[in-house]
């Protein structure tokens, strides 16, 4: 393992970078389907996207086991995460608080969706997609959306609608999704409905 990759690639200014990245994520979570941009640079070893890396640095620490999909996972990435955030890699998907998936990644069926008593004890899943310009069009509605919100996503796994319907049916339980494309992101909290 090359130590240099695990020690570099963090935020240049961790306090303000984490604050601005969090605000971008929060604004997107509060307004599902709107496209946010990560303003602070972070680079992880391997295929983890820029926004994904920034989200990991902003929200993960020793309290949040992190799951990496096989396409992303590497000893270098685990070392990078441990050095910059103190977070460990989740030994199995049931313990994941955050999960990072690459292009076309499908959420593991065993990611925690919380319980009816504690629906907040669920995973936040961050999936890289190819873009928000072309691709499959969706119409969203729900809390955070005045009326309906159009969204196009390219590079999402097939059968996403069916997956999301099943996730929405579990409400208030369910996973929350963040879709990232390079430095941009769109959040789909579990409260969102896909109309068509």
């Amino acid at each position: 393992m090359d130590a240099s990759t695990s020690l570099t690639g963090g935020f240049a200014d961790p306090v303000f970078a984490a604050q601005s990245v969090f605000r971008a994520v929060m604004d997107c979570m509060a307004r599902p389907g709107t496209i946010g941009t990560i303003g602070s640079e972070a680079t992880a070893p391997g295929a983890l996207g820029a926004a994904q890396a920034a989200i990991a640095l902003t929200l993960c620490d020793a309290d949040t086991p992190v799951w990496f999909a096989d396409t992303l996972a590497s000893p270098a990435l685990s070392a990078w995460l441990a050095f910059h955030t103190g977070a460990s890699v989740a030994p199995d998907p049931t313990t994941a608080k955050f999960a990072f998936l690459g292009l076309g990644g499908v959420p593991h069926p065993d990611f925690p969706i919380g319980t009816q008593d504690y629906p907040d004890r669920s995973a936040t899943v961050v999936i890289e997609v190819s873009g928000f310009e072309a691709g499959e069009p969706f119409t969203l509605s729900g809390p955070g959306i005045a009326g309906t919100q159009p969204l196009s996503v390219a590079g999402l796994f097939p059968d996403f609608r069916t997956f999301w319907q099943a996730n929405r049916a579990e409400f208030p339980r369910g996973i929350d999704l963040i879709l990232t494309a390079g430095t941009r992101l769109v959040a789909l909290p579990r409260s969102v409905r896909i109309l068509d």
Binding site: F22, V25, M26, M29, A30, T58, L59, T64, K97, P119, D120, S122, T124, P143, G144, P172, D176, P189, R190, S191
Partner: peptide, 11 residues
């Protein structure tokens, strides 16, 4: 911040 994100997701 993690609590706030979950709170927004479950209004």
């Amino acid at each position: 911040r993690r609590a706030i994100l979950k709170a927004i997701a479950i209004p």
